[in-house]
Design a protein around this nucleic acid. Structure first.
Ligand code: FES
Ligand code: FES
Lengths: 162, 162
DNA sequence: GGAATTAAGGATATATCATATCCGAAAACC
DNA sequence: GGTTTTCGGATATGATATATCCTTAATTCC
């Protein structure tokens, strides 16, 4: 069970977009260069964010992406689910129904106890991600990333933002 | 991000083994029949449980598997990790290091803030699984599975247990 | 001792999914 | 009108999950 690398990409891209001044857009090309990622494939991740209405886009030169909501209105789970999908990590194939001792046509009233526990754990994972806002991440990063790197990065970004 | 179906298989097999009388073994063949699973492939899952020292085995006719510990000393996480591996679901490829604005040879002191949050969620998932004991599952199942099916199942199992 | 049964592990095949690239269409800017 | 951009579809490649087969060694039963 491993998350796709797109998750890391999407989260970092959102963190950058969160630092963009009101009304400006940043292109896939710039985001790919900044993170050293394949532009075409990163584009798929950004499209996922777009379909989830987390980012807005505009075409043409000076086009690109910007956040569709303020960073405090976006949480980690939204971003992760946008690229990873909303499906639960555990899928029950109902093997209990194969028990030869069950009467023909017997129908279970509840989901299997095993599945319920696995889903509870899945929900705990989602809850943790839901509680972290994009603005929290930006706050942590601005504290931890050395001030000169942080400043130069956003100068670099602004030079390319349309 | 999807767990392998072996996880469901292993959990259900452990639930059955938990109901086995002291000192008896149950074969892969019986466990596969009971759950309607491919015997050869289920065998791989059981081997994983064996390597994790969750079950003990013996060879020959009347051989098979039994739990290596009491059901209250086994938790869900142990079983899940035995077949799924202990690797974290989020892997950081350190894309922040590709930032062209970083000085040559700059070395981060901490893991990335993004990764720390994803790992925290992962830990919440594991914590939930760690808190559920195999004995808890058996308790729930014995309450929820209709008494006659439950009884017939273990008659079926005992007939095949060596 | 010999035949049958079983777990363990290696080799291999297949299907599904993640990763990655390419292209054409439509929109926006100059 | 030409350029730049997002978007979606098509396609290729690699990794992993699923599944089967076969050999070996240990154990049981006759
Ligand atoms: S039958 Fe699927 S988890 Fe129990
Ligand atoms: S660099 Fe990997 S999560 Fe930030």
């Amino acid at each position: 069970m491993i998350l796709k690398s797109q998750v890391e990409w999407a989260l970092h891209c959102c963190a950058i977009l969160a630092g963009l001044p009101e009304g400006r857009y940043l292109s896939t090309k710039a985001l790919a260069e900044l993170h050293g990622l394949p532009k075409e494939y990163l584009s798929k991740a950004l499209q996922s964010l777009s379909q989830a209405s987390l980012v807005e886009t505009t075409l043409g030169p000076s086009g690109g992406y910007r956040l569709a909501k303020t960073p405090s209105d976006i949480n980690f789970l939204e971003i992760v689910e946008a690229v990873e999908g909303k499906a639960r990590s555990f899928t029950c194939t109902n093997i209990r129904a194969n028990n030869p001792c069950r009467p023909e046509g017997y129908c279970d009233s509840k989901p299997c106890a095993v599945a319920r526990i696995m889903w509870e754990a899945d929900e705990a994972w989602r809850d943790t991600l839901r509680r972290v806002r994009l603005s929290d991440l930006v706050g942590t990063l601005s504290e931890e990333v050395p001030a000169d790197i942080w400043r130069r990065t956003f100068e670099w970004v602004l030079k390319r933002a349309g």
